[in-house]
Amino acid sequence: MSTTTPAAFSSARTTATAARVLRQLRHDPRTIALMLLVPCLMLVLLRYVFDASPRTFDNIGASLLGIFPLITMFLVTSIATLRERTSGTLERLLAMPLGKADLIAGYALAFGAVAVVQSALATGLAVWLLGLDVTGSPWLLLLVALLDALLGTALGLFVSAFAASEFQAVQFMPAVIFPQLLLCGLFTPRADMHPLLEAVSDVLPMSYAVDGMNEVLHHTELTSPFVRDVVIVAGCALLVLALGAATLRRRTD
């Protein structure tokens, strides 16, 4: 048995954690089905709601490709980490030689992998079967969707620290996600909002997720606003993950 000080980050412990999270998910096929199929069904629904105006479907559809992974991963992560906190397994893990970064990165890796599958299905369906008209590369759509999923995972992890029960965790969804949904430019361009709200939307990460999707929708090349959007979403995800790590305490009252 080694008695060296455990490293702050260990890739083997991170992958073990990610594998464990995915294994837990595998015992729950219904959750997998919901995570993968619901976004696809919503896109199909949307396509025929805007049957007469394919341009509207393009705009809203592309935005939703970024928003779905964010919402799903937010919900799944906040409940999963809350369960980890309440079941005592978090206390056990933190009494073991596991770095907080290992745990957080493990969750991000596992749910990131699920998000790749979810986004690939939704993007593929939208572009090839539902006729979503993207000027840029669908791969860039996928990239933004993956970053959005990471952001959702990060927000979920962070928020779970403030929820004492599953009831509260679920209520954080409308509290954290809905305002961003209203202000991200999905319903009306952000420039048309009240100046105060526009300013608020400038500091909310989902605005940049939707902006990034729209850049891919309208431009063939990599535009500088797209790069900016991607960097902001990724930066926010990392920042919130770090905040989430700070909420994990080895010693509790």
Binding site: S2, G88, A95
Partner: peptide, 15 residues
């Protein structure tokens, strides 16, 4: 952390 085995009152395992 690697030298102590700790069992909490409520079983802490993944159901």
């Amino acid at each position: 952390r690697s030298r102590i085995g700790y069992v909490t009152q409520a079983p802490s395992v993944y159901d």
